[in-house]
């Protein structure tokens, strides 16, 4: 096993604060899509969720990243999110916000 070029323990702290604040905005998009599944909302939701895959993973929120990836793939492949996957994503995001 090669040594990792570890980042300092507190490296991600400020980014995590911004990330958790951003979660609320994505949750609003998820709720809007759930209430009215329009194309306009879908594009915005897709962009937000695609970005979430990357930034959540980068900052150590692997579960959010994994759930977001499933939704992202579903939209890419089928043109719309799977409601159950979207709900699962919303739940892990809510859980993280509540911490």
């Amino acid at each position: 096993m090669k040594p990792k070029r570890a980042l300092p323990e507190n490296w991600a702290a400020s980014f995590r604060t911004r990330f958790v604040e951003r979660l609320e905005q994505v949750l609003v998009l998820i709720r809007a899509w759930t209430a009215d599944s329009g194309d306009q909302q879908l594009e915005e939701l897709h962009t937000a969720i695609h970005n979430l895959v990357g930034v959540a993973g980068a900052l150590g929120y692997a579960e959010i990243s994994d759930c977001a990836r499933l939704v992202d793939v579903a939209i890419n492949e089928r043109g719309r999110p799977d409601p159950e996957q979207l709900d699962a994503l919303a739940r892990v995001m809510e859980r993280e916000r509540a911490r």
Partner: peptide, 15 residues
Amino acid sequence: IGKSLAMADVIDKVH
């Protein structure tokens, strides 16, 4: 580099 990688791994791979 996949964006879902933790940043410490990203840096490791960049190196």
